[in-house]
């Protein structure tokens, strides 16, 4: 899967979790840019992405990710 395909798949998960199909993600997107992205929803996101990509984030990943770009980096490395 190339980075764009990963982004597409992650975008779909965001749409599902936030129940909002208008969300557009870029590398620079952070929690501040999306209204409901609080610590609780963050857990839901992480779990859903882990399930969809059949991988586990490390705790360091979970706490350290600064933006969507870093999330995509991790997913790319996990392939």
């Amino acid at each position: 899967m190339n980075r764009n395909e990963i982004l597409d798949k992650v975008t779909q998960i965001f749409h599902d979790v936030f129940d909002d199909d208008s969300i557009v993600l870029t590398d620079e997107t952070t929690a501040k840019d999306i209204d409901d992205w609080d610590s609780l929803t963050h857990i839901t996101l992480i779990s859903e992405i882990e399930e969809a990509f059949n991988m586990k984030f490390s705790m360091k990943d979970v706490l350290g990710m600064k933006n969507v770009g870093e999330m995509l980096d991790i997913l790319e490395q996990h392939q």
């Binding site: 610590s39 609780l40 857990i43 839901t44 779990s47 859903e48 399930e51 586990k56 984030f57 490390s58 705790m59 979970v62 706490l63």
Partner: peptide
């Protein structure tokens, strides 16, 4: 369960 969820959010069970 998923240990990191408990360490980071005090959640003893996984979402699944």
């Amino acid at each position: 369960s998923d240990a990191k969820l408990y360490y980071s959010a005090k959640m003893p069970v996984s979402l699944n």
